[in-house]
Amino acid sequence: MQTKPHFAFFDEGSKKEIRRATLKAVAIPGYQVPFASREMPIARGWGTGGLQLTLSLIGKKDVLKVIDQGADESVNAVSIKKLVQYTTGVALTDHTAEANIIQSRHRIPEHPLREDQILVLQVPNPEPLRKVDAREYMTKRMHAEDDYSGAWLILFEQIMKYGKMTTGAAHPVYVNGRYVMAPSPIPRFDNPKMYYSDALILLGAGREKKIYAVPPYTNVESLAFEDYPFSKESFKGKQCKLCGAEEVFLDEIINQETGDRTYQCNDTSYCMERLNSAQEKEVESSYA
C-alpha cells in the first residue's frame, strides 16, 4: 500500500525548525544560521538547502519556478520541481513574472524580481572564509570578530597573480556593512541584483546545514579595492544568437568543427519570452 505523502514532504516539526532559523536569518542579514538539515530524497550538495527552504515556505496557492544554471528544463531543476509538485500539488511555471517562489541554482533571473516574490538560492559552500581556515570554529570566530582580512587577502592574491580579481562565481559580498557572505555561486554579473533588491532572498546550504538571508532593500556590496574596482563579466558587443538580447548573461557555445563562437542567453525562459513576443509582434504586423 502506498500512502499519500505529507503536505510539502516534511513533518510539521521539521518545518517549524527551518522556519525559526529563517526568521533569525532575516533578522541578521548575511549571518549563517545553523539548522538541522533534514535527510532529503536528493543527495546533499544538490540543492537540499534550497529545497528545504522552499518546502518550509510553500502553500497551496503558491506558484513555483525552479531553475538550474538559468535553465528551467535541466535535471536538477526538473527533479526538484517534480518532488515539490508531487507532495504539494502547487502550480509550476517557467515565467519568472508568474512565480512567487523562485528556487534557483547559480543564477538570479534576468527578469527583475518584485516585492511579492521570494528568491531561494541553493548554496554548496556558504562559508566565504573556508579557504582561509578549514575549521568551522575558527571561521565562526572570524565572523564574530568582524575579521575579514582573510577574505580580502584571497582577492589581493588573485590581483598579485593575475592582475585582476578572478572569482568565477560567488564573489563575496558585504551585507548591511557587517557580514561577509557567499552569495552562492552566482556569476559576478548577478551580484549587483542583490543590492536593494525588491524581493526577499533566502539562501540554503543543506550539506553545510546553514540558512542565511538578504532582506529586501539591504545594502549588499561586492568586495573590491579602490584601485581594483568590482566589475561584472562583460559581454560588450555580443548578443544572443536566438533572441538578440544584449546586456544579459550569455553562454559561450563553441562549434567543435569550425571553432566558431556563438552566444546564447543563459536564462532560457527570458530568451523564450523574448522570442515569443517578437513572433507575436511579427504576426500582428503582417496581418495589419
Binding site: 503536505f7 518545518k15 522556519r19 526568521l23 532575516v26 533578522a27 515556505l57 502553500g59 526577499l200 532582506p215
Partner: peptide, 17 residues
C-alpha cells in the same frame, strides 16, 4: 499545516519588511 503556513509567511514577510 495550511493555516500555520499562512501565518509563517505573514511573519516572514513582516520580518523581512
Amino acid at each position: 499545516v495550511h493555516d500555520l503556513q499562512q501565518v509563517y509567511r505573514n511573519m516572514l514577510d513582516c520580518m523581512a519588511r
